[in-house]
Amino acid sequence: MTERLQIFVIVLGLLIFFGIIELVRRRKLREEYSFIWLITGFFFVLFALWSDILLVLSEFVGIALPVNTLFFMALIFIFLLCLYFSLRISALTTQVKNLAQELALLQNQTNAMHPKIPTVP
């Protein structure tokens, strides 16, 4: 890894790290979701500072160019991230469904008790 690329990756990693902290501070991102992005920033800095890790990893996995190892790992990471979000969406879909059903049944009860309250259009 060239010195220039090393500096670029370190800066990028730090930007991700502090950017995520700032989003959590502003309550735009929940702590539980910030963790995975903080880890991402950490690995950016780690690989930039100790680029030998990439060489060792490349040799272990059998990839000729360390940069390809980086792309491969990024791909795996994005795949796992998508899977994680699919799991979250599935859980949220069930929660939204249950809430909507509960709302509809409660609104029916409320309308039966107070017929003048208008229903949701």
């Binding site: 469904k97 909507a100 049944l105 029916n108």
Partner: peptide, 25 residues
Amino acid sequence: AIVVSHPFNLGVGTALQTGYKYAVQ
């Protein structure tokens, strides 16, 4: 008829389950 209205479209499977929940309730 008694009418229970979903706030948005949830699909026929969920609509049926809302009916089952009403029946049990």
